[in-house]
Amino acid sequence: MALPLTRICRAIIQTTRRSTQLSSLYCTQSSEDRKKQFDKSLLEILVCPLCKEPLRYDEQKNELISDKIGVAYPIVNGIPNLVPQDARVLKESTGS
């Protein structure tokens, strides 16, 4: 019983060291990849989570627009954010 526990503890410590190295590498990667492009093929399947209607991609503002209910969903680091409470209500006077 003691032997496997010792092995596990040693493995945890080694993994921690390795993970720290990998984590710093991830930090470098994510800062380099900050300008990841949005995967436009997702537009074939994505819909507004509220009204379930198709979305329009606004490349200039980097948002996905639900014209039906007038809200805009942001795209962050190339990842579309389609959580309703993170959306922006579009002003009535402008279409985008």
């Binding site: 994505l46 989570p49 509220l50 190339g78 990842i79 579309p80 389609l82 959580v83 309703p84 993170d86």
Partner: peptide, 17 residues
């Protein structure tokens, strides 16, 4: 592989996909 931020209770995806 594609990455998507969404709520599992209200998926931003079409039916029958």
């Amino acid at each position: 592989i594609s990455w998507l931020k969404g709520n599992a209770e209200s998926l931003p995806v079409q039916d029958n996909t």
